Simulated assay, not measured.
Amino acid sequence: MAETVLLTGVSGFIAKHIALKLLNAGYDVRGTLRRPDRADEVRAALVPYLTEHAGELTFAQTDLESDAGWAEAMAGVSALVHTASPFPIAQPKDPAVLIRPAVEGTERVLKAAAAAGVTRVVLTSSTVAVLNESKPDTLQDEADWCDTHLPTTTPYAKSKTLAERAAWEIAKARGLRLTTINPGLVLGPPLDEHYGSSLGLVERLLKGKDPMLPALGFPIVDVRDVAEMHLRALQRPETEGRRYIAAAGSMAFVDMARTLKAAYPTRRIPTREAPQFIVRALALFDPTIKSILPKLGHLERVSNARAVSEMGMEFIAPKAALLASADWLVKHGKVRA
């Protein structure tokens, strides 16, 4: 009989890819949904890619902000993969909009797992929980943590950091065997047209929305590699109690734009870097731009050495992940030709 894995937020961009990896590896997957009417959407996204020996996909209705349904969702499962968390394009005016559901939701889900005797947990965190802005332009790794007390730390970074810290505290207190996967900017091809805000940056570049680009960059990873790392974490007991950065390398905005311009030369994709004073002026009118001000002038870099050495990961290159995203968006008409 196949093991059953509870996968939270199964309708998400990353979660669908994780579900596909788990199912094709022979696991049964019980995916949680806040809205049960999305079950058909998720099933339709996965079915074309399932192998002959794939596990069974079922669903459970739950909400990160409610206790209802979690005990039932945990019944009979051997492991929990917790991916569900809010992910914004622009930072909200009220940080609690992100922080509260991320932290309380993680606490609720992990405590429900412990109560049900489910001790194996893989948590999707983020490199924003790793990157410490007091050490700009340095290569950071799993020993580093975001400083949530810095005034420049975004609500999203706080939400992911506090949620991950809460997970580690609960794991220690309740005897959970926890692994965290900390992805950078997740690119790559979606499995369907419901991919949330993850590819919003690539859409913005392809549409030429900005005349010039801010001087900054960040770690990038392909969604297929993120999913593979969740699978390997479950399959390898030696990953328990450890964090793993999921990143193939870093790219500056301008390098991303030039890569896309080379692939789509007829598109009006900006390739010039904007002076910082112009970006700060634009941020007065655009909340998406305002959210990146603390990172201006910096290339965020993280080490993937642990994932390579301990998980045997061979990452898809950042440029390849970027182009896979763009190709999918163009092919599916998400940006005008």
Rank of each mutant, 00 (worst) to 15 (best):
A252D: 08
S11H: 12
E169A: 15
A44Q: 14
A19F: 08
K319D: 14
D144I: 04
A337I: 04
G241C: 12
P219N: 10
A317G: 08
L199S: 02
V335G: 10
T288L: 07
A262Y: 02
M212I: 04
V47F: 07
G55I: 06
I220T: 06
W328M: 14
E142P: 06
E133H: 07
V118S: 00
A324T: 03
L131I: 14
L7I: 01
N132I: 02
A45N: 06
M311F: 09
L139Q: 10
S126D: 03
V29H: 03
L234T: 01
A317D: 15
A75L: 07
Q235M: 11
T62K: 00
S303K: 11
K319I: 01
M229Y: 01
L57F: 09
L131M: 14
M251R: 10
A114H: 07
L23W: 11
P294T: 11
V42D: 02
G69K: 11
T271V: 15
Q140H: 12
T266S: 15
R232N: 05
T239A: 10
R267C: 04
F315W: 12
Q91K: 04
E104M: 13
A143H: 14
F218E: 05
K93T: 11
E65R: 13
R34A: 12
P294L: 12
T288H: 05
V29S: 08
S325C: 13
L50H: 07
A263E: 12
N182E: 15
